[in-house]
Design a protein around this nucleic acid. Sequence first.
RNA 1: GGGCCCGUGGUCUAGCUGGUUAUGACAUCGCCUUUACACGGCGGGGAUCCUGCGUUCGAAUCGCAGCGGGCCCA
Length: 866
Amino acid sequence: MSIPKEYIPHEIESKWKSAWNESIYYFDWNENKRPQYVIDTPPPYPTGNFHIGNSLNWCYIDFVARYKRMRGYNVMFPQGWDCHGLPTEVKVEEINGITKNQVPRAEFRRLCEELTSENIKKMRETMLELGFSTDWSNEFVTMDPSYYVKTQRSFVKMHEKDHIYQEEHPVNWCPRCETAIAFAEVEYESRYTNLNYLHFDKLKIATTRPELLAACVAVAINPEDKRYNDYIGKAIKVPVFGQEVKVISDDNVDPSFGTGVVMICTFGDKQDVRWWSEHNLPLRKAIDKNGYMTAIAGKYEGMTISECKAAIIGDLESKSLLYDQEHMEQNVGMCWRCKTPIEILSEKQWFVRINPDEILSTAEQIEWIPEHMKVRLQNWTGTMEWDWCISRQRIFATPIPVWYCRKCGQTMVAKEEWLPLDPTQNNPPVNCECGSNDFEAEEDVLDTWMDSSITPLHVSGWLTRDDTLLPTQLRPQGHDIIRTWAFYTILRSMSLTKIKPWDTILINGMVLGEDGHKMSKSAGNIISPDEVIANYGADSFRQWAAVGGTPGSDVMYRWKDVISASRFLQKMWSIYRFSMTHLENFDFDKNKRNLKELPLVDQWVLSRLNKVVISTTKSMDQYQFDEAFKQLRGFIWDVVADNYIELVKSRLYGEDIDDKLSAQYTLYTILNILIRMLAPFVPFISEEMYSRMGFETSVHLSEWPVGYKGDIDDDIEQQGELIKDIVASVRRYKSEAGIALNAPLKKIEIYATIPDIRDIAGATNSKVECMPGTPDFDYVPVEIKANMGVIGPKFRKKAGNIISKLNELDPKVAHEQISHGNLVIEVDGEEVELEPEALVIEKEVMSGGREVDVLDVKGIVIVIVK
RNA sequence: GGGCCCGUGGUCUAGCUGGUUAUGACAUCGCCUUUACACGGCGGGGAUCCUGCGUUCGAAUCGCAGCGGGCCCA
């Protein structure tokens, strides 16, 4: 079987993509021999584009999933799709040239489902290209009845526990989307606005929102503010509209802002809501759900907010009530989808009761990687001021299974066994307590987070199996949305099961473009994973994901990283090709060797290999993929390719059968272990190499190698390193002297005892001899240095002076002294005695006129006889 | 305004439980067709380890302050 010289990723990757049987990645629900490892894969929003940020996240997941399988876990790496939401509604309206109210609800929903299915298909394809070991038998789609029945049942269960309730309460409202939104959906942006100074009856106030004068319900001052003390408790008249409001005092009024007098409206901002509830103020709604002024705005009724603002300012000016304006910066809350400034309206909505303490204590029981990301959740949790508003005024979402009796007004929440259902399509199967069967359906639907915050429950078999697998072992997620998914999911999991959703959270960073900015459409620095695969293949892309940065840190996308990754594949392939041609007729099972029987160089490389296995395993266990892969790559390139192979070539090409078999045994062992460790990172090339070695099962069903501490021998390693260094040094010598690298030298004399010099002779193509004693040359000590590891702790404060004293010494004299015993020097008038271990003496060897060259390798003299 | 993270050759980065010679990749320059690989090998140049103060015999590493960047939030 000949192995092509060039590694062509496209051919190999597409071959395996179609050859692989995906069922090898299925989670086995019916076995209990292996420990479970369930991954709560984040369900992406099906935009149709599986972007590079997803890809980074999924590479991490796949590294873990493949690694854990090889370590003997029963792994579930499911894939879900978080379908519901506004962007799809908008897209459907765009594609079909309609608005959602022009077609029946069911029809509109069907159009959304269709588009979503197409998008899922596209994204699945990219995931397959990238070689993810997804368990497609556990795929879930939140818009399917089989999934949203769980969302609905969770609603009913939480309602029964009083964790969900309906109430009129201020909510964040997007007038463009005509829906309530949660705090998590509010984005803040700095904008400029005018601060308007108004005559307000006897007082002067400053406000950025004069259009809300009609909604003014009080005026507030700081109790410490002497200027206005007399007004507290008095009533004053609101200009233009004439309603009488009370002057109240509150510590939160900043006397230095504006005039120190603030008008309170229902509602200009969050602070208004706080004051409104603390001081039990009345409610005046001046803005309706569509963003128009209401009847209480009098002649301004029906205007938009900005029209009203302009009109009122004009009127105030003409009545000389506006006496000053100041340009100022202001942070405006906006809808994260459409960037329309949000309003705070009081509406009847459904809420989930939040329990910050429970969320915080649960977060403590979860391992966060990196640890500091937990703080973000804690900070966010601490700022929650009111409950989570879960009702939305949209169509493409999970329906709220509720009706209202038209006769008596009673709310009927569906029974779990009726679900799934859409109340706008089905009537309840029973009559109301009052006997009526005339119901009005709840048209509001659920926030999509109600779907996606139960994914760990869903993948664990909650409501479909007697036992759930909770907690799941891992949730991988980007750090941009910690506040939402972590908060909501912990909340739901605790409310519904009292079990934490995950053991571990693995956070990934954002992907930055080559310009250093977060990759985004608006920045125009987008690279798609498909583009990278088309050029260099999935294995190269995956290496970028592994070594681009530590999990949690942002990772810059760089073409050159992918290019060097593809070079590594070629290098590995070349090592493999070389090895395999020397292993053609080698039977591993018949030629097993005991470690100690092997030549020194083989023992050395195997000792190093065991160390790499142990440290790579440790890095994988800590999710440090960059460390793990760099160790592998470094070992393969530096140790195996540049040194080990060069050292054993002569044995592989030589006549000595036993020497040759030892090298073959060692090479085979190295390959077998390295290929399996590469498998989680570069699944395609690993499979190709593994299968060509004659294994019938997939490398992805093999076991992760075990490193044995007992096979690590520091003495052997030291001797092996010396051999490696001597050969490298001779290679360098030849290179610098212009001698062909395979040209023989007359003789190489090594002034040290090395038990096994056959590979030195082989690699240098020269006669090698270990010489007894010291060479017949003059040593010239050139420098005397302090060994700080010894001197520092021993002499403390004196160490500094000892160093400067040592620098003054003549290295020759010092060396003379130290060769007879300890070095005694005078420091600060005291005699200090230094042991040989405390010093390092650098020497040069003079060739003294002999017709030879002399090399120095770690203090050992090598004589080259030309 | 608050919180978290980060600042290391031209670029990106390792080290950061303190030990004097700071890792690697990419880029750059020079040499080499050598029984796997020129998508390779060997060698070279290139760093005020953001700044300042402090702790210490000794600081890239620990502390404080400042400057700069990123992210999350208000």
